[in-house]
Nucleic acid binder design. Structure first.
Length: 582
RNA sequence: CGGGGUGUGGCGCAGUUGGCUAGCGCGCGCGCUUCGGGAGCGCGAGGGCGCGGGUUCGAGUCCCGCCACCCCGACCA
């Protein structure tokens, strides 16, 4: 490829909209073009990178027995009605009608479609287990996209699905895919990625892990133990908090708190502290009011709340809705509300802490001396509703937990029989009985993986691509070709020889300054740069530059022109070795 | 969906209280000089200012409505 023909212009100033370093570089390098909110064209450079990512994914999925297939983007609404998700999934799924007024959806994930495909094609226990996957376009009408390719509405995803007769068999495949994912992310050159326990959300199922790249630009919060292997998404993370309770119980006492609503205001006013306050956070779960009580120094975690309520349909309560269960915004407390009309959920921190300040469900009134065990009926359930915080004790070893940000690059779920049962996927067991298989699903975002590599591996000049996914392996920079035809000839021969050897090469012999040429090369990020110039030609060599993370110290700085290709092949092999299939 | 912000050549921006042929830098084309880390000079092409209505002798500039995009939050396999 001649650089002047490459579609995708390199620019010095990034558009102001770009927020993250990686997004800025992808725009500056001419990798992507925004079409709409969360919608991008992958220009040739980005598409080359993604194709290489996909090739690695295919290799590793095939290695664990995956069969590639391809499902449609559009499907009739009936399939989603069969699983029940046509109702439960919100407006992130794009729905429309075709010319015959038939309801359709853009599939945002493919459990329904794959179950439909395999239930018609699998009849016998002899055919289990099996793993299928596709690399295909997904559209999700996210309320908000951000960070360039980190969070988009349309994207390419590898999604895989496995089917099994038994939970043990699912577990085995799950772990094989887990290992395959680890190999994939290593081979695309990610370094700080980890797997963590995760929420199952709308997917259902029991066991789930996410693969996360630890990164400041990530959207998720990761909880990591400083001492042991414990690591989890904050949505599911636990901690072993210790609650001291040496205080004697005080009697319940009403106190006037004119205009004092927030934890801060109330505790300052009463000369107390947040550890002695009971925070009430009110939501609507569908039509039903819900109040979550946590200690004043903790925050409610919405994902945990949703699991406790067994629903995803939760929104903050409006001030006008508090009267429906006999309370008032700012002064909500657990005593004296109409429990037939409101669901009260208590966090462990409230159950374990003595003498809390609670709202009295009346304007400008609080109550002190609340004690969970004394003041509520025996057997009132206790939940884990709070965010884990920096420094909380690890649930496994008790050492302090730390928080990091992370980009979710892949996830794996054990779904169980949620979809196979709802959609009546039955097969004949060995004894002639009909059985329903259990299922796993496995996703990787291709574009997000590319974007994550840029976020992790870059400098101020551009992306530093691992050779395994770089858009070009070699870039030939031919300096002074416009002045000296013999230099142009040498450069051209190097380029032709590289191509003949099957090496993906970008050739730059434009009549531009060296600085300009090198700046472009940095943005394109070929790991090996071959510089042909009058200076080098006099020495009979081509100069070599490496754009890689931690280059081996003993790589040569030049190679003789008369035996160039074998020398370059050897260098490329060395650079590629760390990313090879293992 | 709530809050905030921005829309002026491909990109980044400037356009005083409405006023004359809408500017600047980068990029692009041509020429000359340069030529190892985003060169210099000269000439030139390219927009009618997000869209639709108003007000006015006159509207990027004022008014009304809408749209798009960005950020924060809500939301999110």
């Amino acid at each position: 490829m001649l650089i002047e023909h490459l579609v995708g212009k390199r620019i010095a100033d990034a558009p102001k909209d770009a927020q993250t370093p990686g997004h800025r570089l992808l725009l500056r390098g001419g990798y992507i073009r925004q079409v709409g909110q969360g919608i991008y064209t992958l220009l040739p450079l980005a598409h080359r990178v993604c194709q290489r990512v996909e090739a690695i994914i295919r290799e590793e999925m095939n290695r664990v027995g995956g069969q590639e297939l391809l499902m449609p983007v559009v499907s009739p609404a009936e399939l989603w009605e069969e699983s029940g998700r046509y109702q439960t999934v919100g407006s992130e799924m794009l729905r429309f009608t075709d010319r015959n007024d038939h309801p359709c959806v853009l599939n945002m994930t493919h459990e329904e479609v794959i179950v439909d495909a395999v239930r018609a094609n699998i009849d016998s226990y002899r055919q289990f287990p099996f793993l299928v996957y596709q690399i295909q376009t997904k559209f999700r009408d996210e309320p908000r996209s951000r960070g360039g390719l980190i969070r988009v509405r349309e994207f390419t995803m590898k999604d895989g699905y496995s089917f099994h007769r038994t939970d043990e068999c699912l577990d085995k495949t799950y772990h094989e895919v887990h290992k395959a994912y680890t190999r994939i992310f290593k081979r695309v050159g990610l370094r700080r990625f980890i797997d963590i326990e995760s929420d199952t959300g709308m997917m259902g199922g029991s066991v789930a892990h996410e693969f996360m790249l630890v990164s400041d630009v990530g959207e998720d919060t990761l909880v990591l133990c400083s001492a042991c292997d414990y690591r989890a998404n904050r949505e599911v993370a636990r901690s072993k908090r210790v609650y001291e309770s040496s205080e004697a119980m005080q009697p319940l006492t009403n106190v006037e708190t004119p205009g004092q609503k927030t934890i801060d205001e109330v505790t300052t006013f009463l000369k107390s502290d947040a550890r002695h306050a009971c925070k009430a956070v009110a939501f609507m779960a569908g039509e039903k009011p819900v109040v979550a009580f946590v200690r004043g120094d903790f925050d409610v975690n919405l994902a945990k709340l949703k699991r406790a309520l067994r629903t995803g349909d939760v929104r903050p309560m409006e001030d006008s809705e508090f009267a429906s269960f006999g309370s008032v915004a700012g002064f909500v407390g657990p005593l004296g509300v109409d429990t037939a009309k409101v669901t009260l959920l208590f966090d462990e921190s409230v159950a374990q802490s003595p003498n809390l300040i609670i709202g009295a469900n009346a304007v400008d009134l609080h109550t002190t001396g609340f004690n969970f065990t004394r003041d509520l009926p025996a057997g009132t359930p206790v939940h884990d509703l709070t965010d884990v915080n920096e420094g909380d004790p690890c649930p496994c070893c008790g050492k302090p937990l730390s928080l990091e940000r992370g980009i979710e690059i892949g996830n794996i779920f054990q779904l169980g029989k949620k979809y196979t049962a709802a959609m009546r996927f039955e097969y004949s067991e060995e004894d002639g009985s009909l059985a329903i298989p259990t299922m796993g699903c496995y996703g990787i975002g291709v574009g997000r993986t590319m974007a994550s590599v840029v976020e992790e591996s870059n400098d101020k000049y551009g992306p530093i691509w691992p050779i395994s996914i770089a858009p070009f392996q070699v870039q030939v920079c031919c300096l002074g070709a416009s002045k000296d035809p013999s230099i142009a000839d040498v450069g051209r021969k190097v380029y032709d020889d590289l191509r003949a050897a099957g090496i993906e090469t970008l050739f730059d012999a434009r009549a531009v300054g060296a600085g300009f040429m090198f700046a472009d090369a940095d943005l394109i990020g070929a790991p090996l740069r071959v510089i042909v110039s009058p200076r080098n030609q006099k020495k009979g060599v081509a100069e070599l530059k490496y754009r890689v993370v931690e280059p081996p110290a003993d790589l040569p700085a030049e190679a003789p022109l008369d035996n160039l290709i074998p020398a370059l092949q050897e260098i490329l092999a060395r650079l590629a070795a760390p990313f090879a299939a293992s």
